[in-house]
């Protein structure tokens, strides 16, 4: 069940970022990019998420997951094609030699952090 490790890695990174924004900061939205070939089971991730983030800065965060589909470049004929599984052959020449272009992403794209009491409030008198 490596999805729990994945969540704790996400949480650790998010906590580091939130600390820079002062006390009372929370994550409102977190955007993840997990490719369809990344080896992560999204249903497991979703199942574990609420329990794993309870009591943390991610507890109330909305988690958006972008799922880039697999795309490969054939090592034999150069054809670029959609790939669901590593063992899918090139539809043009049948070769299994391929290079994955997309679909292995495993990334935190962005965090939206809200801070009730801004650490630094900049007031500008425009008069």
């Amino acid at each position: 069940m490596h999805e729990l490790s994945i969540i704790y890695s996400i949480l650790e990174t998010a906590e580091q970022e939130v600390q820079r924004h002062g006390e009372d900061s929370m994550v409102e939205t977190i955007e993840l990019e997990i490719g369809e070939l990344a080896g992560v089971e999204i249903s497991s991730l979703e199942f574990l998420w609420p329990a794993a983030v309870a009591g943390t800065i991610l507890e109330k965060a909305v988690c958006n997951i972008i799922r880039p589909p697999g795309k490969a470049s054939c090592g034999s004929c150069g054809h670029v094609f959609g790939i669901k599984q590593y063992f899918d052959p090139c539809p043009q020449c049948g070769s299994h030699w391929n290079e994955i272009i997309n679909g292995e992403e495993l990334r935190i794209k962005s965090l939206t952090i809200t801070c009730a009491q801004p650490a630094v409030a900049v007031a500008t008198d425009t008069n």
Partner: peptide, 27 residues
């Protein structure tokens, strides 16, 4: 926060929202 007016001093500071474009590998 770009403007300052006397009215603003009577209300609690609005929560700030920051988008951090992290683009970092989860692992």
């Amino acid at each position: 926060v770009t403007n300052y007016s006397p009215a603003a001093t009577l209300t609690a500071p609005a929560p700030t929202k920051t988008v951090v474009e992290l683009e970092r590998d989860i692992l």
